[in-house]
Design a protein around this nucleic acid. Structure first.
Length: 282
DNA sequence: GTATGTGTTGAT
DNA sequence: TCAACACATACG
């Protein structure tokens, strides 16, 4: 029996059922299974997505994924090993994925495919980035996690500071060690403080996310009297809401969020860590 | 029962 | 090599 290529409806039978015109083929197809725009990605009946790649005249099944994008990323990962770094891929290279060939070189092709299939690929790749970043550059840490199902997030640790009693006291300010302030934060008027006294133009505000992506804003300025770089407005709230005490640690990161749908964004992140003598970590 | 992945086909 | 599609079989 020849169907018209789109469905398994028998033409002559469906004609006899009713006189209503057949639903346009494109619509019927879409309903049953949307077509993926990604290479190596095939729809599954239940709404999930399969990933596959062809090599040596046969199909290599990479697994099924709830997200079409996850399936597309799985294809990309497999393509690196099976087709090389110049092969066509679903997503452009990023600061993260550019390390993927290096990561894969430690494994056999079969091992790479198996990691993709059993879902351990991402965490192993994250481990790889973590361990290698330490050896490449001191005080630099990569973390990588699934951002939902839509991409990756990579954070590079800029610096951390153990909080002093005055950082969490009633001075309502945080001293940023100068070497970090000048290296990682925007340049502010260390010189023309005559203007800074009453000039709003020098009201620099730095914005950070925390781990739950909540926004925190801090006024960042230079205090001539103590010759120090400080966070003022906004810092007190951060201390209170995180119940920070002396000897707790705050950590600053520069993060890159790769959202497949929305693109790549870079932002700062601040993380509060409770000290050993305190309670649970934040 | 549903989820997964193979068999198979026609197109490129 | 590729994706569409059907469906056998693995799975819980």
């Amino acid at each position: 029996i020849i169907s018209n290529g789109e469905t398994n409806v028998i033409p002559e039978l469906s004609d006899s059922i009713s006189s209503t015109p057949l639903i346009p083929a494109t619509k019927r197809l879409r309903h049953a299974s949307a077509v993926s725009k990604f290479k190596g990605v095939v729809p599954q009946q239940n709404g999930h997505w399969g990933a596959q790649i062809y090599a040596n005249h046969q199909r290599i099944w990479l697994g099924t994924f709830k997200s079409e994008k996850d399936a597309a990323m799985a294809y990309d990962s497999a393509a690196i090993r099976l087709r090389g770094v110049d092969s066509h891929r679903n997503f452009p290279w990023t600061k993260i994925t550019i390390e993927e060939p290096n990561f894969q070189s430690h494994y056999s092709t079969e091992a790479v495919i198996n990691m993709i299939r059993d879902g351990s690929y991402s965490s192993r790749f994250a481990d790889f980035l973590r361990s290698h970043s330490r050896t490449l550059e001191e005080d630099v840490i990569f973390t990588q996690m699934r951002a939902g199902t839509d991409g990756w997030m990579m954070c590079r640790q800029l610096f951390q500071k153990e909080l002093t009693p005055s950082d969490v006291g009633k001075l309502n300010r945080l001293v940023i060690p100068k070497k970090y302030a000048v290296k990682y934060f925007p340049q502010i008027s260390e010189r023309v403080e005559e203007h800074a006294e009453n000039d709003k133009a020098d009201d620099v505000q730095l914005v950070f996310h925390d781990k739950s992506m909540k926004l925190w804003k801090f006024r960042y300025c230079y205090w001539k009297s103590s010759q120090s770089f400080v966070f003022t407005r906004g810092w007190n709230r951060f201390v209170k809401e995180n119940q920070l005490k002396a000897n707790d640690t705050i950590c600053f990161y520069l993060c890159e969020l790769r959202d497949i749908a929305k693109g790549t964004k870079t932002f700062g992140m601040i993380d509060a860590k409770k000290g050993e003598n305190s309670g649970a970590s934040a």
